[in-house]
């Protein structure tokens, strides 16, 4: 090969990568926890602070864990999707109220509806750190053995639910 073509070849490779890079979101960080056991916690429940909510109670079920907060605008965006999903009864969504004020969280759920059978409270953000949450909303799909199978970063949309979450839930249910 003509060695004067070398700069051009290198440049073409770089351009291809940059082109692929345009489609990627540099701010989305894949979780190393997918495929690992969901970290344990026992947090007070939002509606009943005296009772604790723990993933151990959900062994044998496929469920979603949704981190949200009343101050988070993305949560407002995804809320109708969660309501729809909850109504369909395909999979239970458990909430984790992340770094929030109790009264504001209650008011928020009252106003927009509550898709969660149980909401845990993570006021110090420690559960969030254990789950590798870096920005709410984030949603985890957890299987019957308590292993994280999928993590959604940012708001859920109907498309993701229909194409990713529900097929995955069906597959996990059948195992």
């Amino acid at each position: 090969m003509n060695r004067f073509l070398l700069p051009l070849s290198i440049f073409i490779v770089v351009v291809v990568f940059l082109g692929v890079g345009l489609k990627l979101n540099p701010r989305e960080i894949p979780s190393p926890l997918v495929g690992k056991a969901a970290p344990d916690f026992s947090q007070p429940q939002l509606y009943d602070p005296a009772t604790v909510f723990s993933p151990a109670d959900l062994k044998g079920k496929v469920w979603l864990l949704n981190f949200w907060a009343s101050w988070c605008s993305g949560c407002r965006t995804e809320h109708p999707v969660l309501m729809e999903l909850a109504k369909s009864g395909e999979v239970p969504i458990f909430g984790m109220d992340y770094k929030d004020q109790r009264d504001e969280a209650l008011a928020w759920l009252k106003r927009w509806g509550n898709p969660y059978p149980v909401v845990g409270v993570d006021d110090a953000g420690r559960v969030g750190i254990n789950y590798g949450v870096y920005g709410v909303p984030e949603t985890y799909v957890i299987d019957k053995q308590g292993v994280i199978r999928y993590k959604q970063i940012g708001p859920l949309d109907p498309d993701t639910v229909a194409k990713k979450i529900l097929p995955l839930v069906k597959q996990l249910e059948s195992q």
């Binding site: 003509n2 004067f4 073509l5 700069p7 051009l8 440049f11 351009v15 940059l18």
Partner: peptide, 14 residues
């Protein structure tokens, strides 16, 4: 970028 740099590097190679 592809046109300007690619073009000039091609010219260079030639």
């Amino acid at each position: 970028l592809a046109v300007v740099i690619g073009g000039s590097l091609a010219l260079y190679a030639w």
